[in-house]
Write a protein that binds this DNA or RNA. Structure first.
Length: 753
DNA sequence: TCCGATCTATTTTTT
DNA sequence: ATAGATCGGA
């Protein structure tokens, strides 16, 4: 620990040593940002600061874990574990479990993930008889989420003329009411969604001065990673927490801001100098990670963005080899070619699998990569995607756990009450929901006091409900006595859930049973670990409640323990941020995929996509390969693609591209013997050809999401509408044909819905 | 109330 | 492709 400071370059060193007062570090990709943060923590402790007084915030679990590991390496586990290090959400959840009572929440509140939120929104929509085509749950969810991350309460939402006008012009005036009901429902269930973890922390700190003071005293030194990704709520919370000592150090890179879609606001970086006039600014511009070619490619790409803080990222590293380029005819071939390339590099240079990463824009792209790698027997691991905790059987079992911990959790109640079937059907549940709404109490309250709330049910049903609540209560009683694993297994068996899947006797059900076993094993490990650490410490360790708190914020597979060491990494670019790999493949560089179709209509969104591409490029240390496939299965359909505009933004001289440039659909059809075009798609192209009786509609009011029919392309869905007047264009996804951009002036479109 | 067959929306990215 | 929603029959 003595000479840790000698590991740093001059700029890093000053940033590490400026421990007092506000500090902002603008750190280019690969410039040792995490290093600065971890060494800062070590340095603080070296100077005698109590680790309990240090707070370090990150965005992803992976980044948090990485930071923890590195800090532990520097200063040892014993002291290291006392630093409050974690994601914003997990740290604030921890605080809210302790202080939530001030806001009227019990400490065992349930955290709803985005799935749970959407399900709740769905059920509110159906109660309010709103059309889910107009009020698409994900749209409503994102409106609500945006409001919350800007600290706009349901009340403030309804009172804000601009928001209301926006909703009205989008013909969705009900959103304010949905938001209000949604928030009441969460409250009634003693549940918080992800945004509430921030919003409520903000409320806590602004309304309870003594609580704020307690945490201001506690967190004398605050560090924030990826500051460019903070949203308004996070910004204000930080401002409050740091108000006393102003010992706040934020590290960020505007060029890597990729979370605008969830409310991140780069202006938080720009505002820093206004909030803390005596701040110190440090810039880290030397890239230690990548070769000259990679850095140059990245700089070139990002220079296409208008909005950016000027800085010059450079490297003293070798020139390195040219960027690789893979041009495949289909997504499957792309997977094969990437796997071949990995295999070749690995064999020629005797490299471990862990040197390789394959990065993509969307989780769905992992499949063809997996197939390719499996074909070559290359071990891989996937981050994210449909995570373990999102599988149906896991959610089913977790719903029991959650309900046992928090009986008021209505989502879990609805999920578990008739799974496995107990003869408590829709009619019964409807009556309960109605009674709950009428008396503004939650469903558990109604179920356990049927008479009091005037619910009329026959004696058989009453008995069934009674049995269910008795069972849940008995589980809850055992929670205090039993260890997490024992209780979990007991619930899996006594609830009948395990039996239900066993009885099903399909291959699918077998894997569901296996997954349940896996979850139980995970719990076993957890409680054993708890018992180990328990000596002398918290008595709560190792209970099911603790386990649930632990996993509530783990949305992707974060359990890396088992020998996942030497494997190729597959992940989205978003989750790759902050990581680095010697060999990186960026796949699916196609228009409408990357940049994504939803982003190409506005400059800000397109620039965010470009920053995402920048992040992807700068993950690579030694070699970067860019991949493009001429066709791809998307939404279960065969689609013809065009190369991404981003490919043109890298200087040709940096890419090792085969001379022949052949692209586009014509070429593909000419040589389509190689590409498997499913029969039914060919059929649908042929059968839906021009029909003399076809009548086109007035497309003046055409909107995203509408269903249309085209005389030649058949039925499709409008993905985007852009331009005005005679130049108005629509991007339509046609079943079996793929995506088409149509000039409405000419296109004969019939609006179906 | 349950079950199966059929229809339908869904896919951007993360906590 | 796939999970969930919906509907009709048992």
């Amino acid at each position: 620990m003595r000479d840790i400071l000698s590991d740093l370059n001059k700029e890093q060193l000053v940033a590490v040593e400026a421990t007092e007062g506000p500090v902002m570090v603008i750190a280019g990709a690969g410039s040792g940002k995490t290093r600065v943060l971890t060494y800062r923590i070590a340095n603080l402790m070296r100077k005698g600061i109590d680790p309990f007084n240090i707070l370090s915030l990150t965005f992803t679990n992976k980044a948090a874990r990485e930071m923890k590991d590195r800090v532990m390496q520097l200063i040892g586990d014993r002291e290291g574990r006392n630093v409050w290090m974690g994601t914003f959400h997990s740290i604030f959840a921890k605080i809210l479990r302790i202080e939530g009572k001030h806001l009227g929440y019990p400490s065992n509140f349930t955290i709803y993930d985005s799935d749970d939120s959407k399900r709740l929104i769905r059920s509110i929509l159906s109660e309010k008889n709103l059309d889910t085509k107009v009020y698409s749950p994900s749209y409503v969810a994102s409106r609500i989420s945006m409001a919350k991350s800007s600290l706009v309460s349901p009340r403030a939402y309804a009172d804000n003329p601009e928001i209301i006008a926006a909703d009205e012009s989008a013909r969705k005036p009900e959103i304010k009411n949905i938001y209000n009901t949604y928030q009441n429902r969460l409250r009634r269930a003693d549940a918080m969604d992800f945004d509430d973890l921030l919003f409520n922390t903000y409320l806590l700190f602004s309304n309870f001065a003594e609580v704020l003071l307690k945490y201001q005293r506690k967190f004398k030194y605050i560090m924030v990673d990826e500051y460019q990704d903070t949203n308004h709520a996070q910004y204000l919370i930080l401002k409050k927490l740091a108000a006393n000592t102003e010992n706040i150090c934020v590290v960020g890179d505007d060029a890597q801001s990729i979370y605008g879609f969830r409310g991140a606001n780069i202006s938080n970086m720009l505002n820093f100098k206004h909030d803390y006039s005596d701040y110190h600014l440090f810039k880290l511009e030397q890239n230690y990670r990548s070769t000259k070619n990679i850095v140059e490619a990245a700089n070139h790409v990002i220079s296409y963005n208008k909005d950016q803080i000027k800085k010059k990222v450079w490297t003293g590293n070798d020139q390195g080899s040219l960027l690789g380029f893979i041009h495949a005819t289909s997504d499957n071939e792309e997977g094969k070619m990437v796997a071949d390339s990995v295999f070749e590099l690995k064999m020629n240079n005797q490299l471990p699998n862990s040197d390789f990463a394959i990065l993509y824009r969307t989780n769905a792209q992992s499949r063809s990569m997996e197939e390719g790698l499996r074909g070559k027997n290359i071990p891989y691991k996937i981050y994210g995607g449909t995570s373990f905790y999102n599988r149906k059987e896991i959610k089913d079992l977790l719903a029991y756990f959650r309900l046992v911990i928090n009986h008021n959790d209505e989502d879990s109640l609805q999920r578990s009450i008739n799974t496995p079937a107990r003869g408590i059907g829709k009619t019964t549940m409807e009556k309960i929901v109605v009674a709950a709404d009428e008396h503004d109490v939650n469903m558990w309250e109604v179920i356990t006091n049927l008479a009091k709330y005037g619910v009329n049910l026959n004696s058989g049903t009453t008995a069934k409900l009674m049995n269910f609540s008795t069972m849940i209560k008995s589980f809850a009683a055992e929670m205090k006595k039993k260890e997490a694993y024992d209780l979990a297994r007991h619930i899996a068996i006594s609830s009948g859930l395990l039996k239900m899947f066993r009885d099903e006797d399909t291959p699918e059900a077998v894997s569901r049973v296996e997954n349940i076993e896996e979850l139980l094993n995970g719990i076993k490990q957890f409680s054993e670990k708890g018992a180990e650490e328990n000596e002398g410490d918290l008595e709560l360790q190792g209970t099911l409640e603790e386990f649930m708190q632990d996993i509530a914020l783990l949305t992707n597979q974060d359990n890396e323990d088992e020998e996942d060491k030497d494997k190729v990494t597959l992940m989205t670019i978003h989750s790759a941020k902050g990581l680095e790999f010697p060999y990186v493949y960026v796949v699916g560089l196609e228009e409408n995929l990357f940049p994504s179709i939803q982003s190409i209509s506005t400059r800000t969104e397109l620039e965010e996509e470009r920053r995402l591409f920048y992040v992807a490029i700068t993950r690579a240390e030694k070699h970067l390969t860019l991949c493009y496939a001429e066709s791809r299965f998307r939404w279960g359909q065969f689609t013809i693609t065009e190369p991404s505009r981003f490919l043109d933004e890298i200087d040709e001289s940096l890419i090792d591209r085969p001379k022949k440039v052949s692209m586009g659909a014509k070429d593909l059809f000419g040589s389509s013997t190689k590409t498997k075009v499913p029969k039914r798609n060919l059929k649908s192209i042929n059968t839906s050809s021009s029909d003399p009786s076809f009548e086109s509609s007035d497309t003046g009011g055409l909107q995203t999401g509408m269903k249309v029919e085209h005389p030649k392309f058949g039925k499709g869905k409008v993905m985007a509408v852009e331009g005005n007047g005679p130049n108005k264009k629509a991007t339509v996804f046609f079943n079996g044909v793929g995506q088409k951009s149509l000039l409405l002036r000419f296109a004969k479109l019939k609006i179906i819905v």
